[in-house]
């Protein structure tokens, strides 16, 4: 049932994505622009909290269990957001400016959801690791970076 819903959703999104690509022009729909801005803000929050953990992992900041746990808990909350409204059809890099999200993202929704779940699992693991000790934090960093990279590898343009 859930799979069928996801498939149906993906089909609708990809068809309307095609329509969006055809009618795209220099004028960006404010709703689309808003969604792009919102999802980029979510990414910025990821980066900010990862920065706290990364600075400790790389020895650029002293290990602080409380600060690390706070950052990891934020990441966990971010991965738990319902982000479906942030990725409307027609908000891909072929349809509008200002985004590097490839149309392939809309064509592979089941895979995107799987990758999002992997990110959530990595963030969950980081909550435990961040409060344990520096070695655990460093160990959990790789999986988190890998989860970010997996989605960016498949669904993001190289650069602007």
């Amino acid at each position: 049932m859930k799979a069928r819903f996801t498939f149906g959703l993906a089909a609708v999104l990809s068809i309307s994505g095609l329509v969006g690509a055809v009618v795209a022009d220099s004028h960006v729909d404010p709703a689309i622009a808003g969604a792009i801005k919102a999802r980029q803000a979510q990414m910025t929050l990821y980066a900010f909290n990862l920065g706290t953990l990364g600075a400790m992992a790389r020895g650029n900041a002293p290990y602080d269990a409380e600060a690390a746990t706070a950052a990891a808990t934020n990441l966990q909350a971010l991965t738990g957001l319902n982000a479906s409204a942030l990725w409307p059809a027609g908000s891909d890099s072929e349809s509008v400016d200002g985004t590097r999200a490839l149309p392939a993202l809309w064509q592979n929704f089941p895979d995107v959801i799987e990758k999002a779940q992997a990110t959530k699992a990595a963030a969950d693991a980081m909550v435990t690791a961040a409060g344990t000790d520096l070695a655990a934090l460093q160990g959990a960093m790789g999986a988190l970076g890998g989860a970010c990279g997996d989605c960016h590898k498949a669904y993001r343009l190289p650069d602007e």
Partner: peptide, 13 residues
């Protein structure tokens, strides 16, 4: 790690 100094991550190839 694939992380930039701003903790963006490497994408694409």
């Amino acid at each position: 790690s694939g992380f930039t100094p701003e903790f963006d991550s490497a994408g694409g190839h």
